[in-house]
Design a protein around this nucleic acid. Structure first.
Lengths: 211, 211
DNA sequence: GTCTATAGGTGGATAGAC
DNA sequence: GTCTATCCACCTATAGAC
């Protein structure tokens, strides 16, 4: 059993940069040359670790999805209430946006038609995992009397995922994180109040700086 | 004053196809060669009408934005109520999605970081126009007692634009228009009911088949 | 207004030395 | 595991004939 010598493995650094490039420029908006020059390695070295761009893309989603899932599991094990879970969930998105990025899978959803098949199914799987987790949280909150909404939790969960992804997409164009924050706050307010009573100043803390 | 001879001008056909390619594959997901081969012309001919890809992109947004604005003006002049305006607005989006496309400017928002400057400002302008129009409709509906929401209309308008864009983005990945329709219906229901009472089957008619 | 031809560059990807 | 060198397909864009 051998621990990696380098603090950050080369392949990981490649993935880190590739991830940022996809999240900012899209899957068709960067090249192996971009990564190679930034990391001071050759394209050939990149191809050693990631034979094809399709494979690189697949690995990116895999890693991103796993990290996301871990964060959601950690939230479940934290024992906090449903509303706080939703706040933390929103904060993950906000952290991504603060780094001037779009959600990896939200970005890939835009590029969807041009993606190789393995990446396509990984993208939709990401959304489904998120929707299922949110649906469970919503149900938990409804049972606890903490959240109020009509209809199936999964349907509300889908509204949340779509709205947050869209809010990131648009807010990033304006380079205004506040655009995202206001929308996210309003979505949560509408769920936590018995009737639609969302006015005044809302703010959310900052516990999950991510990505 | 001379009417174009051809039923559809060549430049228009080029724009039509380029628009579809951007809406399905993104601005970095197609080439002049794609358009040329599909229309049976040469790349050089394309460059005659649209010297650079940046100029082609700018013209695409211009045309799309103008068509959208015309549709909104027509709605204003139709004299229908605020809720029906919102329904028609949603139906424009639904029509785009049914053609297996993403909103042009929603797609370009994903490609934003890679766009030439003139395209960037045209994209954000599109969103602002939509938000302003929606804010006016929301205010109209609130005054008429037809819509119920708290806070500034512009804030709710931004929620609507972002949520609809996100719903298109995600629904297109699943190739499920119904995902979009459920979310859009729920958004409108939440605005039209005094309290959040959205259950059961909702449906919306189909008056604006669009691009 | 459309064509042929091509420039000049970059894309993803591979062979083979070290 | 990283390099040099290279392939070939494709990219945006232009020159100049018709």
């Amino acid at each position: 059993m051998r621990v990696q010598t380098a603090r950050t493995d080369t392949a990981d650094r490649m993935l880190d940069l590739a991830e940022r490039l996809v999240q900012t420029r899209g899957f068709n908006g960067f090249s192996y040359a971009d990564i190679a020059s930034a990391l001071d390695v050759t394209k050939a070295s990149l191809h050693y670790h990631f034979p094809t761009k399709a494979e690189l893309g697949r690995r990116l989603i895999e890693r991103y999805s796993d990290a996301f899932t871990s964060a959601l599991v950690a939230l479940d094990e934290s024992g906090v209430g449903a509303l706080d879970k939703l706040r933390a969930y929103v904060e993950i998105y906000a952290g991504v946006l603060r780094n001037e990025r779009m959600c990896l899978c939200g970005m890939l959803a835009a590029d969807y038609a041009t993606l190789p098949e393995p990446m396509k199914s990984a993208v939709t799987h990401f959304f489904e995992v998120n929707e299922r987790w949110l649906a469970a949280v919503l149900e938990q909150g409804r049972v606890a009397g903490e959240l109020h909404f009509a209809g199936p939790p999964l349907e509300v969960a889908r509204l949340l995922v779509s709205s947050l992804e869209g809010a990131m997409l648009v807010a990033r164009s304006f380079n205004e994180v506040s655009r995202f924050q206001w929308i996210a706050d309003r979505l949560l307010t509408d769920l936590s109040a018995a009737e639609s009573v969302s006015t005044g100043a809302r703010s959310i803390e900052n516990p999950y700086p991510v990505g």
